[in-house]
Design a protein around this nucleic acid. Structure first.
Length: 787
RNA sequence: GCGCCAGUGGCGGAAUGGUAGACGCGCUGGUCUUAGGAACCAGUGGGCAACCGUGGGGGUUCGAGUCCCUCCUGGCGCACCA
């Protein structure tokens, strides 16, 4: 028996499932049900990504508790999912906010720490001064906190990090292994990791003992360097400037209206050019990133657009070192090196190679590889997350707990007021006596980023009740996940973190799994037309009616304007509710429509006509099977074999829209040719093929026809019948289609040509011309080439 | 700006380099009626025709929607990444 692990991204329990979930889970369910019918051992679990900010905010807003709110949402959403007829392994269910999940995550944290993959350091974070908490980047809108509207500050805090950068190279290289991932996602990850090959060069500061390291991908332009620029957060800055001076500069930079406008503050130090030994000015510049490379650059204005702009603004010399016309400056392409004694005449690649050799020789630089990828900051100053198993002593030292000291449970009795971290204010939870030292200690009050929770849930599903995080043998046997289905919005974060986790756990536990997800399928979002009143008020589709050639709001009779189809969103109110759709159209029509109108990886526009025609299809099939007679045509069996073959192929390719087309084609044939199957074996075969898509409808029909709810196994195909013997053979003259002839497969070319030349259309085409050549692609096409 | 993806009827979309437009929606005409969110039948790329048609222009090929070059348009992602 072949194992198939089919997984859809688990939902955040926000309260209700939405149409996007429905599409996601129906696609996965079709896949899982197909494999079960094929006799595969299918794992198809579901769980809850249950920690996170919305629970805390809801708790404050509705005066409830995050845990109660979350559990009640889970219950509600589980009920909703059950109405979708999903064949899920509910006995594998997990919720990341429950002790029996997060306590094992705390074990993994300890493992990572012991492996040197978790560490603590000071870092710049977004700080909301009113809420007294760190905000994620996506919670900062126009520099302001999304909840408070307060101006967000950059603040240095001591934070926990996971050393994902250790795996940068492997995360990049192994993308090539992921042949069943969309290229788009792989490209996004590649860009995010952002590998650059270049050089690290040391610049001496004149008259001081200090050196400045600089990363560059263009060491070949070193002779054109005319200035140095460093980030305001560079550690050299704090050495030469006072705190208040630095603050002043930061203020100047942040007051910049156009943040692309380059600004520089000249420092009172000079740098020595490593080859020419001339003195160069050093600027603090707003465009130098402090978190990339060394936070410092050498400016080569002639061959870099940003440096050029800066040099022009501050009247710095522009030295050409790549051959080009003056009006081409800044010239950033490859070219012949000039004005560079060591490199003249060389092209970029050779010049880079040679100059690096020179630097290494002189011990002032070396080849260097740089990544955009930063280590993953996992600390969150929030209550509703997995506690980090660390304690702090009064002397400032900390200790990561032993596994035997776990779990660190979240206290239930917290005071949530939106001001800061409730754990920090919970003294009786925070303060403990360390059992090892008998000293007073304080628990870590930061919790883990919820992306940590989702980085290994697919492993926990394999054995959700085990007394340790996972069983090594099971992981080796059942991972990677064969098909992982979800939205493209997780292209970087979740999918990159999970890949990192898998690799880290592989190394710690000696697993033989490299990648968590063998195949990734990203389903498209669901869109809907938007509606609003003259007063720019959004109106839900169900409140809009069409009468007398006009769209009006049902209740108020206001005139409605129709806008373009956009992603369903609560803010624009262009949503339909799954519960209401199921009520009106039934589960089978809903499942059909989820895959009908466009390929699953593209957007699906929700339309009344679309869902209605799905319902009509259901009714049509059901009606067909009530016709109580059987009569076959000669080609019926062949058509059925072809149908099975196509459905199977299209399910495996995720071409589910084509499955629907196959179904229409089949029933068009059956009805038009008056082929009736009723309770025949062929009906059984058809029902098995429809079952993954519309299980409920098939069971109902099966009950009627066969008095059975056993749907059986996926039918095997008689491939002999698939080979059409009668074919329509296209005949071309000079590559253009002239006619088609009916013939049999395996015809003899010479024989058939004789009859072709007798056809009037062909005769007329050839007439007084000479036949140069006849191309016969056996059983496919014949092309007659004439003069 | 860089990267990726995509441009096919009125619309959604089909086409291992081999009959472009499967299938659906919509539309047109008709049938029936136990008036339904029906059902059924016929038709539906353009043109009177020969023919012309897959964003524009070139190329490879006996043959291109499909492969190559180039340009245009749209979507998504990243965005001062040195």
């Amino acid at each position: 028996m072949q194992k198939k692990y089919i997984l859809e991204m688990f939902p955040y329990p926000s309260g209700n499932i939405h149409m996007g979930h429905v599409r996601n889970y129906v696609i996965g369910d079709i896949c899982a049900r197909y494999h079960k019918l094929k006799g595969d051992e299918v794992i198809h679990p579901m769980g809850w990504d249950a920690f996170g900010l919305p629970a805390e905010n809801a708790a404050i807003q509705f005066n409830t508790h995050p845990q109660d709110w979350t559990f009640s949402n889970i219950q509600n959403m589980k009920d909703q999912l059950k109405k979708l007829d999903l064949d899920l392994d509910w006995d594998r269910e997990l919720a990341t906010c429950k002790e029996d999940y997060y306590r094992y995550q705390q074990e993994l944290f300890i493992d990572l720490y012991n492996a040197g993959l978790a560490y603590k350091k000071d870092a710049l974070v977004n700080w909301d001064p009113e809420d007294q908490t760190v905000l994620a980047n996506e919670q900062v809108i126009d520099g302001k906190g999304w909840r408070t509207g307060a101006l967000v500050e950059q603040k240095v805090l001591s934070q926990w990090f996971f050393k994902i950068t250790n795996y940068a190279e492997e995360l990049l290289n192994d993308l090539d292994e992921l042949t069943l991932w969309p290229d788009k996602v792989k490209t996004m990850q590649k860009n995010w990791i952002g590998k650059s090959i270049g050089a690290e060069i040391k610049f001496q500061i004149v008259g001081k003992d200090d050196q400045l390291n600089i990363f560059t991908t263009r060491p070949d332009t070193i002779y054109g360097a005319t200035f140095i620029a460093i980030s305001v957060n560079h550690n050299l800055v704090s050495k030469y400037l006072k705190e208040d001076e630095i603050e002043e500069i930061k203020k100047i930079f942040s007051n910049n209206i156009d943040d692309k406008e380059k600004q520089g503050i000249l420092l009172d130090i000079k740098c020595l050019h490593p080859i020419l030994e001339k003195e160069m000015p050093v600027y603090i510049a707003n465009f130098v990133l402090d978190n990339y490379g060394e936070g410092a650059i050498f400016g080569c204005p002639a061959h870099d657009e940003r440096d050029y702009e800066f040099a022009v603004k501050y009247s710095l010399p522009i030295l050409k070192v790549i051959k080009c016309e003056d009006n081409e400056l800044p010239f950033t392409q490859d070219g012949e090196v000039i004005n560079s004694p060591l490199l003249n005449g060389l092209k970029k690649t050779e010049a880079i190679k040679k100059i690096i050799e020179y630097f290494e020789d002189k011990n002032i630089g070396k080849e260097s590889i740089n990544y955009k990828l930063r280590d993953w900051g996992v600390s969150r100053q929030r209550y509703w997350g997995c506690p980090i198993p660390v304690i702090y002593y009064e002397d400032g030292n900390y200790r990561v707990l032993d596994k035997s000291e776990l779990p660190v449970l979240l206290p239930y009795d917290v005071n949530l007021n939106g001001k800061g971290n409730a754990l920090l204010n919970h003294d009786s939870w925070r303060k403990i006596i360390c059992p090892k030292t008998n000293k007073v200690a304080f628990r870590e009050t930061d919790t883990l980023d919820t992306f940590v929770d989702s980085s290994w849930y697919y492993i926990r599903f394999l054995d959700n009740k085990l007394g340790k995080p996972f069983d090594t043998n099971k992981v080796n046997e059942y991972l990677p996940v064969d098909k992982y289905i979800g939205g493209i919005e997780h292209a970087i974060l979740h999918l990159l973190y999970s890949r990192f986790f898998m690799k880290a756990l592989r190394d710690i536990y000696k697993l033989n799994v490299n990648e968590p997800f063998k195949q990734l399928f990203t389903q498209g979002m669901i869109t809907h037309k938007t509606y609003k009143t003259q007063n720019e008020e959004w109106v839900m589709p169900k409140d809009v009616i069409f009468t007398k050639g006009k769209l009006i709001r049902d209740k108020t009779k206001e005139l409605i304007q129709e806008g373009p189809s956009e992603k369903m969103s609560k803010s624009k109110k262009n949503v339909v509710e799954p519960d209401e759709i199921l009520e009106s159209y039934g589960i089978s029509a809903t499942r059909f429509f989820m895959i009908s109108d466009s390929p699953p990886d593209r957007e699906l526009e929700w339309t009344d006509e679309g869902i209605q025609s799905s319902k009509n299809l259901v009714r049509r099939i059901e009606k067909y099977f009530t016709i109580d007679k059987t009569s076959l045509k000669e080609d019926t069996e062949k058509i059925i074999e072809k149908f099975i073959y196509n459905i199977e192929k299209n399910i495996l390719n995720f071409s589910l829209n084509k499955c629907v087309a196959d179904i229409y084609t089949l029933f068009n044939y059956l009805e038009k040719e008056k082929v009736f199957l009723y309770d025949s074996e062929i009906s059984k075969k058809i029902l098995v093929c429809l079952y993954p898509i519309v299980p409920k409808m098939c069971l109902n029909i099966s009950k009627e026809l066969f008095k059975s709810v056993e749907i059986g196994n996926w039918p095997s195909i008689n491939t002999d019948l698939l080979l059409e013997t009668n074919i329509n053979l296209p005949i071309q003259v000079k590559g253009k289609l002239v006619t088609t002839i009916k013939t049999k497969k395996g015809y003899i070319e010479e024989d058939i040509l004789k009859s072709i030349y007798e056809i009037d259309k062909i005769k007329n085409k050839i007439l007084d011309r000479k036949v140069l050549k006849v191309i016969n692609v056996q059983d496919k096409i014949i092309n007659i080439i004439t003069t």
